[in-house]
Write a protein that binds this DNA or RNA. Structure first.
Length: 559
RNA sequence: GCGCCCGUAGCUCAGCUGGAUAGAGCAGCGGACUUCUAAUCCGCAGGUCACAGGUUCGAAUCCUGUCGGGCGUACCA
């Protein structure tokens, strides 16, 4: 019987193959891609639905139902897989999996274990996912938490789908924002030692800099001040960066999100670094020109709406130049594909970044930019303003303390990334027990509990899995159907970069398990039936814990 | 002004790349534990998919326009 990953798909492939053959018999040349098999919403419409008759009928001058009838007549299907074929509605051809096929998948899943759902869709291609990348000017805030949850889940999914993935955090440790940060800390330090100095108008006014300045050994701080001017600002800036980067790493660790690499913007500015290279390369390609003393990039040649400045008239490089250089660096590292996850305030960069990449020869689909939309934090019905400069914000660390990493991750991953999100803190705190994440985790804990109970009662997984034929209840079949769609779900989530599909699925799967558990007693006097249900529970545990793992959420054994 | 994203139940959101009668959770109402975890299950109620056209066998989904919200539109980062 089914024992490898391929066999999980074989029913589906068998059906599309049979349809293609039947079309061929009728002399209708249909390209393979036009045969679509969908999973109907309504279970009475079977497990797979084909609309090919609807699509092609007009082309060959007949009506869809007639064409469907002729197609079905010519279908040769393996009855081990499909036991019912029906023409329905305007001309859909609906296929139902046989119970034998479905129950057979339980053994296949148990044999594959954690690798169930893995595929070779990616073919080992190298993908880099860059995310969070918030400026190191303070603790991470909520929108970064959302990006972290999404990025980490996407990475897990891509790996599962056969991509080789590296994660990276881009640290903007150069440029004027860092100067401001240094100046802000310096001012806080001077205020601390009793100097009456005004705080810079565009400085970072958050309390955390006061605290940070308080921790600077006084002698050291005074020594930095004596350097004077830019040197002093730089000394305070370096100190502050060191601390904020440590915070950021700690926050991410507390959230359970790891990065393979932290790439420092300052590394681009070294002698022989990509800043120089990208300018030279663009000059070679004739993509730059000088105007009013500044160096411009002709990004309009590549579809951007206006040209962009690379080097200001005062000779300093722009943020965009650094970004272009950074992407040249990524390109040279040999990634087949690069995914940047941006915050909502950076979506204007997409066109110019694509332009920048095109010049150094990156294919159109090399760079994908995903935009994570804002999170509005609501508390007691009012929106909390979030601004590092304004100083009032909810940090990622606060969120972890308030509602926990698992719950907040699940919350973020329930939504499409490009939709705005209202995070109701009051509700999340007060009703964290109502959070859907517990529903999914509880199903897992329940399974663990019942498995150990079964063992205590002497029910073990049988060597021979033929007992699964005893599974016939609707709740059993519904649960198996949900297990069977898992591999396809992974591929869909990987192709569309939509990790939220897994959280929806997790709820659906947990729901079908809870219903099964409620209706079907697992450990009963009927040993063979108990064994069969135990096998089903184990298969569910595998898929559920894998789903949670991909989402970056723990799968507790007891709750 | 121009560009991108969004508008689905009272609230927060799904809707599998154009399919059949648009689904969950929360909130509301009513039921189910002397038996494997009640953080569970079952039922009821809740909708002009912002609005108007268009494309076609078929539209919440694609196109155009309007309205509403967010973001961007720097020789800031």
């Amino acid at each position: 019987m089914a024992s490898s990953g391929e066999n999980i798909f074989s029913a589906r492939e068998a059906v599309s193959g049979a349809i293609a053959a039947a079309l061929d018999k009728l002399g209708i040349g249909a390209d393979a891609g036009s045969i679509m098999l969908e999973r109907p919403n309504d279970p009475s419409h079977g497990d797979l639905s084909c609309n090919i008759a609807l699509v092609t009928a007009k082309k060959i001058g007949t009506n869809p139902r007639k064409l469907a009838a002729r197609l079905v007549e010519g279908l040769e299907l393996d009855e081990d897989f499909i036991d019912r074929v029906e023409i329905a509605g305007p001309g859909f051809i609906n296929f139902s999996f046989s119970d034998r096929y479905l129950t057979g998948q339980i053994a296949a899943i148990n044999e594959l274990g954690d690798s169930y759902g893995s595929s070779n869709l990616g073919g080992g291609r190298k993908v880099q996912v860059e995310f969070v990348s918030a400026n190191p000017t303070g603790p991470l805030v909520i929108v970064s938490a959302r990006a972290a949850a999404i990025g980490a889940a996407l990475v897990n999914i891509l790996k599962k789908a056969g991509y080789e993935v590296e994660t990276e955090y881009y640290l903007n440790d150069a440029g004027s924002q860092v100067r401001k940060l240094g100046a802000s800390t310096m001012t806080r330090f001077r205020q601390r030692i009793g100097e009456d100095v005004p705080f810079p108008e565009d400085g970072y006014s958050g309390e955390y800099l006061v605290d940070l300045a308080a921790e600077i050994p006084e002698g050291e701080g005074r020594a930095w001040l004596e350097k004077g001017g830019d040197e002093a600002v730089k000394a305070f800036g370096d100190y502050t960066l060191d601390r904020t980067i440590t915070w950021i790493k700690g926050d991410l660790e507390g959230f359970g999100v790891e990065f393979d690499a932290f790439f420092r913007e300052s590394a681009l500015y070294v002698e022989g670094g990509e800043i120089e290279d990208v300018l030279a390369l663009y000059r070679d390609r004739g993509s730059v020109y000088e105007e009013e003393g500044a160096v411009w990039f002709r990004s309009t040649d590549y579809g951007d709406e206006k040209d962009r400045v690379l080097v200001r008239s005062d000779g300093t490089p722009t943020y965009f130049l650094a970004d272009a250089a950074y992407h040249l660096n990524k390109f040279r590292r040999g990634f087949d594909r690069v995914i940047d996850i941006f915050g909502p305030d950076h979506h204007g960069h997409i066109a110019r970044l694509k332009a920048a990449s095109a010049v150094f020869g990156a294919p159109d689909d090399w760079l994908t930019v995903l935009t994570v939309q804002w999170v509005r934090l609501m508390e007691d019905g009012r929106q909390i303003k979030m601004s590092k400069r304004g100083g009032e914000f909810e940090t990622l660390a606060d969120l972890v303390t308030d509602v926990g990493a698992d719950a907040s991750k699940f919350f973020f991953l329930m939504r499409k990334i490009n939709a705005h999100l209202d995070f109701n803190l009051t509700l999340a705190r007060k009703e964290s027990e109502e959070n859907p994440v517990y529903y999914v985790q509880y199903a897992h804990a329940r399974i663990c509990s019942v498995i150990s109970y079964a063992r205590g009662e002497g029910v073990e997984s049988p060597k021979d899995s033929s007992c699964v034929e005893l599974l016939t209840e609707p709740e059993e079949m519904e649960l198996i159907r949900n297990l069977v769609i898992f591999p396809q779900l992974i591929e869909g989530a990987a192709e569309s970069y939509e990790p939220h599909r897994l959280s929806t699925y997790g709820q659906q799967l947990a729901g079908s398990f809870h219903r099964f558990y409620h209706i079907c007693r697992i450990v009963s006097g009927d040993t063979r039936l108990s064994e069969a249900r135990l096998l089903l529970a184990i298969a569910t545990k595998i898929v559920l814990s894998e789903t949670l793992r991909l989402l970056g959420i723990s799968a507790p054994e007891r709750m």
